[in-house]
Simulated scan of single mutants.
Amino acid sequence: MFADDRRLHSAGEGGLELWDPYTGERTGTVPGFHPERRHPGTGELAAVQEDEVVRWRPR
């Protein structure tokens, strides 16, 4: 689970889920992506999938 000032990111069975911490609504998903790390400066999330580093940057 990761968070920034606008949303909560949680890795579920189906992939990454994005939540609004103020309303409790799920605002998006990234199917199949299970992040393991978050860059503190950029907010970019990273995971290792099949021997490759996969990155995703929240907008």
Rank of each mutant, 00 (worst) to 15 (best):
P21M: 11
S10W: 12
V53Q: 04
M1V: 12
D5Y: 10
V54E: 06
G15F: 06
F33P: 00
M1H: 08
G12I: 04
R55W: 07
T42Y: 09
T23D: 03
R7H: 12
W19R: 02
G12Q: 14
L45P: 00
D5L: 13
V48C: 08
H9A: 14
R55I: 04
G43V: 03
P40Y: 07
W19T: 01
R59C: 01
E44M: 12
E13A: 14
E13R: 14
P58Y: 06
D4H: 07
G32I: 01
E50Y: 11
E25N: 11
G15H: 06
Q49D: 11
E36Q: 15
E44Q: 10
R7M: 11
W19L: 10
Q49Y: 09
P21Y: 08
G32R: 01
D4M: 08
P40V: 09
L45N: 00
G14L: 11
E52L: 13
G14A: 15
G41W: 11
A47K: 04
D5I: 07
G15W: 04
E52C: 04
G12P: 05
R6E: 11
R59K: 11
R37N: 11
D4K: 07
D5E: 15
R26A: 07
H9E: 11
G41F: 12
E50D: 15
R55S: 08
P35D: 05
D20L: 10
W19M: 03
V53I: 15
L8D: 02
M1N: 11
R6L: 07
F2V: 03
H9Y: 15
T29I: 09
A3E: 06
E52P: 00
L45W: 02
R55P: 00
H9C: 10
H34M: 06
Q49H: 13
Y22D: 12
A46S: 15
G41T: 10
D5C: 09
S10G: 10
G28V: 00
D5V: 09
E25S: 05
V54I: 15
E17C: 05
H34T: 09
P31C: 07
D20K: 06
R37W: 15
Y22E: 14
G24R: 08
T42G: 05
R37T: 14
E50P: 01
A46G: 11
R57P: 01
E36A: 15
R6Y: 08
V54R: 05
E36R: 14
R57Q: 15
G15M: 09
V30W: 04
Q49M: 10
L8G: 04
T29E: 13
G28T: 01
T42L: 10
E25Q: 13
D51Q: 15
G28N: 03
P31G: 04
L45F: 03
F33M: 02
P31T: 03
A3T: 09
L16N: 02
L18C: 02
R55K: 07
M1P: 08
E17P: 00
L8K: 02
R6N: 09
T29R: 11
F2S: 02
A47P: 02
G14Y: 06
V54S: 03
A3Y: 01
L18E: 01
R7K: 14
E25W: 09
L18Y: 00
G43L: 06
L45M: 05
R57G: 04
D5P: 03
R38Y: 04
E50M: 10
F2G: 02
G32Q: 03
V48Q: 11
